[in-house]
């Protein structure tokens, strides 16, 4: 059986509020956050800055359509 990441259907979204001084800083922080989490292949889906910081959602696709999905591997698909 694989790890839990195998069972992610497609993407991992990270949502949080980042404290920062500017939209640019928050954008940098959002990207760095994903790097630190070991998810270098990511995209900032939405980021809304309002003074103190930004509401942000960043996404890392683990499986894109047409790829080979972890949740379909032998053992995962049949072991549920």
């Amino acid at each position: 059986m694989g790890g839990a990441l195998d069972r992610v259907a497609d993407a991992l979204d990270v949502e949080t509020f980042l404290v920062g001084d500017s939209e640019e800083e928050c954008l940098r922080l959002a990207r760095r956050l994903m790097e630190e989490l070991g998810l270098p292949d990511h995209d900032v889906i939405s980021l809304q800055f309002r003074g103190l910081g930004a509401r942000v959602r960043v996404r890392a696709y683990l499986y894109r359509p047409g790829g080979e999905y972890g949740w379909l591997k032998e053992g995962n698909a049949s072991g549920g």
Partner: peptide, 10 residues
């Protein structure tokens, strides 16, 4: 409205 990647199940 997100166009840079596929739609997710979530």
């Amino acid at each position: 409205a997100y166009s840079r990647g596929p739609i997710t199940a979530a």
